[in-house]
């Protein structure tokens, strides 16, 4: 049986103690950020190079193995980073029960978008 707690200030500050995790997510956010530096610059440069191009030119670009691989890596890193970043923002500002709904929606949404983007990218060289 748990004693009826008399919350002291220290009790309040210590709360439930340390969860002994957090470094993993911190690392994942940095790792995806580092991956995104070259990938997003590649993407931006490609989009500028494609300015004014039609569908055929776009397909010809994305069809190259290098572009397909980079695009898929970009989608994975981008939505991983997005999910982690948005989750931190939600945790910071939302303190009601809506917090969990928002985090679940963000996580699942990012996963779905990443898969949709990858499938669309793969359809161009393999089905198109």
């Amino acid at each position: 049986m748990r004693k009826v707690p008399t919350p002291t200030p220290l009790n309040h500050a210590l709360a439930l103690g340390s969860s002994r995790k957090g470094a993993g997510e911190w690392w994942a956010e940095r790792l995806s950020a580092i991956a995104l530096i070259p990938l997003t610059i590649w993407f931006a440069a490609s989009v500028i190079a494609l300015t004014g191009s039609d569908h055929a030119a776009f397909v010809a670009w994305l069809k190259t193995p290098f572009a397909t691989i980079c695009m898929i890596l970009l989608l994975i890193a981008l939505f991983h980073h997005t999910a982690l970043g948005l989750q931190v923002i939600i945790e910071d500002y939302v303190h009601s029960g809506a917090k969990f709904a928002a985090i679940i929606a963000t996580r699942l949404g990012c996963f779905a978008l990443a898969v949709a983007g990858i499938v669309a990218t793969l359809r161009i060289p393999f089905a198109g």
Binding site: S18, K21, G22, E25
Partner: peptide, 14 residues
């Protein structure tokens, strides 16, 4: 270090 390791205790520092 173990006692700091927590998404809120330490990693809320932005």
């Amino acid at each position: 270090l173990d006692d700091l390791e927590d998404p809120f205790r330490l990693y809320r520092c932005h």
